[in-house]
Design a protein around this nucleic acid. Structure first.
Lengths: 344, 344
DNA sequence: CTGAAAGCGCTTACAG
DNA sequence: CTGAAAGCGCTTACAG
């Protein structure tokens, strides 16, 4: 049904070695022979099978990007950076999704053992350093985005600092009772952002009060959802005394939080995290991470390591950037347009 | 460096056939032998290589989902449906991204020839029927989402109808001068949605006026962006006489459009398309497509076809659903909260 | 420039 | 229950 290299060889009256050579542009093949082989291959709809090629040549020409969940802007932006970088090379991109519910380490180990790719980029996979270390025994090129392992190339953003900047901005505007909207406590970004939030309070001589950290439903996507933010803001606004500002762990959550405020027809300054495309359009103050660059840079690291496994390890830590828009203004001086309240 | 089946066989004092059997749970192996092999394999960090397995067994255990671009909610939701369905099976999911700038047919053909997967799901790849037909010569199981080929299984939504419903709703509210915000004219969803828009006008005895179709920048993602919608709405609002309602080709565009209205402090009813998660929170009236179900159903079709290549072809066309929220209200009776205007 | 042959790491009838 | 051996479709020294 499907033709193999033998069929082409026979039809072109050459050996399979020659057919292989014309497809790999390796070794020299007489121009006439090359043309004949190509013509026949084309007619027969032939192309070498990846699997056979990979087995024989020990090269797969595949880079795998491993992500915990999809449907997240953060990954999408990073992926764009990875893709563009890979376009310059002969590598194909494979996106592999691992379940966040099961043991992630085991899933990764399994992946690597099956040897599906020449190199791996891990996005937002949070493993203890000892576990990353353990993967080293497979001697496979890898690059880590948004987590840290001293033994591997990687890029990340200083989460603590982003939270610190946002919280400080609110305090310096005069707010004295700054709350936080959080998500799953044990998730790495939350740990670091809570840390930055706390540090900002303390550095400004304000008390850190854990009861001012609010959370909504965290069963879905660790709480990084509109619903999670909505519910958290509901609690926050009912708290007595009512907080006078809010640092929110993500833009999606902030969208939910804004709805809660609009419904209650009240308004406190809020700054969130991520700078989604939509945030600019709804006037959300936020912390930006250079996602595209992170994708591109980590890919550069990976390609370099595939070329030379012994090159020195590199890390980049990017600076988060505070982007101030409408949502962080102190209400009062002018009419504030809430985010459109829904009739739902 | 990496162990093979031979290493395990030797260490366990069995033949490679036996090792293969314990990993495939095929054939019967004495419990004691099985345990011994597993223990050794585990110690040596061994797992069969996919490529070698695929070559020898002719099965890859991989389903490939082919998408034109990432970073799009539509794909993400569909993917969730595909994933959940695949979880019940032994298949792994591979996401393959093809460039929308180059010839998509060629890229797909190349993919299939390389035989990377047991089956393919194509999302929003718009090819003429003759081209889909042509792919048939490879006899590879495939399922098409959001496009139609009589020769293949697939699911899609009636785009024309969605646009028709939205436009009709606006007209029936009393609007007489309904404009449309569009994107790349030649893209399939736009063609169909413009069609539904036109049909609704005509069925209600209103003239179809092409000059009332507005477009912003279409260089990026065919214009399905906040920026595209913003620019289109700017033009729309400057048009004389000003349209009194708007059907918008997508939610992302509507977000940009809302910003334009807020900035100009004016308001016309608007209904868009997609029902993004964010839309509920900003009160956007929209047309919903059952994306998750589409992913799940098309996967079911594909798995069925892999099992039995000769089973009869199936298609499902889903009904779009109109979801009415705040944005489609006729302004006037009550204070309308605009979408938060940005200070940017 | 081209071919014969070994080998990549598995699976799978076929025997026993 | 287990092994010897052929074969999957390629690549790649090695010769010529």
């Amino acid at each position: 049904m499907n033709h193999t290299i033998y069929d082409i060889a026979k039809a072109a009256n050459v050996s399979i070695a020659t057919v292989s050579r014309v497809f790999n542009e390796s070794g020299s093949v007489r121009e006439a022979t090359k043309k004949r082989v190509m013509k026949i291959a084309d007619e027969m709809g032939y192309h070498p099978q990846v699997f056979a090629q990979a087995l024989a040549s020990k090269r797969k020409n595949i880079i795998a990007v491993v992500v915990p969940i999809m449907s997240n802007y953060f990954f999408m932006e990073i992926l764009a950076g990875v893709q563009d970088k890979l376009l310059e090379t002969g590598y194909e991109l494979n996106i592999i999704n691992i379940q966040s519910t099961q043991d992630q380490f085991e899933q990764i180990e399994h992946l690597i053992r099956r040897q599906r790719a020449d190199g791996y980029i891990f996005i937002s996979i949070h493993l203890p350093q000892s576990k990353w270390q353990e993967l080293d025994r497979y001697h496979v090129p890898m690059s880590i985005i948004d987590d840290y392992s001293p033994a591997h190339d990687g890029v990340s953003v200083n989460n603590q600092k982003g939270a610190y900047k946002a919280t400080s901005y609110l305090i310096e505007q005069g707010c004295r009772n700054v709350a936080m909207i959080s998500a799953l406590e044990s998730s790495t970004p939350i740990i670091e952002r809570v840390d930055g939030y706390r540090k900002a309070l303390i550095d400004h001589g304000l008390p850190f009060r854990p009861e001012l950290i609010f959370t909504g439903d965290i069963s879905y996507r660790d709480g990084f959802t509109e619903k999670g933010g909505f519910e958290a803001m509901e609690k926050l606004l009912s708290f007595d005394p009512q907080p006078d500002a809010c640092f929110c762990a993500s833009d999606v959550q902030a969208i939910g939080a804004l709805k809660s405020m609009t419904q209650r027809n009240c308004r406190i300054p809020i700054i969130s995290y991520d700078n989604l495309a939509v945030s600019e359009y709804i006037g959300l103050s936020t912390v930006r991470q250079p996602m595209y660059e992170m994708g591109a840079e980590s890919t550069r690291y990976l390609l370099r390591r595939i070329d030379d496994p012994d090159i020195e390890i590199e890390h980049t830590t990017y600076e988060p950037e505070l982007i101030i828009r409408r949502s962080s203004e102190i209400p009062g001086e002018q009419s504030i347009n809430g985010i459109g309240s829904s009739s739902v």
